[in-house]
Structure formats: structure tokens, C-alpha cells
């Protein structure tokens, strides 16, 4: 499977980070929290109203809005 953006993943799926968009508003923060190349990200669940999305990276749970997942490219 090729590269996708993180919003394409369903709850329960996992993938590895390829890179972050240079203009991603949270780029610095995401890097610090472990969204570095090769890091494994699990999509845990969506909020009851469909958005935001809970992710697990590096043993930490955090939530991002679907619009902020667009700038995160991943591969299987």
C-alpha cells in the first residue's frame, strides 16, 4: 500500500509517519510529541460526533481534528 494522509485511516488501523506538511499549524508540537519519520500511529477512535480523532503515538493518547490529519502523510 502506498502513502496516504492520516485522515484516510479507520479506527483500529495503524500506520507509520512519512512526513508532516511544512505548513502544518501544529508541526513543531507534533514533532515534539513523536510524529517523527517512522513513528507508528494508531487511530484509536472518532469522537461521538465524528470529529476529532483520537490517536496513539509513543504510548501517548491525543486528539486532532480531521482537518489537521490531512497534513500528516503515512504508509503501512
Amino acid at each position: 500500500m502506498g502513502e496516504r494522509t492520516l485522515d484516510a485511516l479507520n479506527p483500529g488501523e495503524a500506520a507509520h509517519v512519512v512526513d508532516l506538511d511544512r505548513l502544518h499549524p501544529l508541526r513543531r508540537r507534533l514533532l515534539e510529541l513523536g510524529f517523527v519519520r517512522g513513528a507508528r500511529v494508531v487511530v484509536v477512535r472518532r469522537a461521538p460526533m465524528g470529529d476529532p480523532v483520537e490517536l496513539r503515538v509513543n504510548g501517548t493518547d491525543l486528539a486532532l481534528r480531521a482537518s489537521d490529519l490531512l497534513g500528516i502523510r503515512v504508509r503501512e
Partner: peptide, 11 residues
């Protein structure tokens, strides 16, 4: 102000 939103979910 815009900008992304990141919510922590601590244990």
C-alpha cells in the same frame, strides 16, 4: 485566531 487544535488525553 485559527491554527490547529491538539487535545491531550492523559491516562
Amino acid at each position: 485566531e485559527g491554527g490547529g487544535v491538539l487535545l491531550e488525553l492523559p491516562p
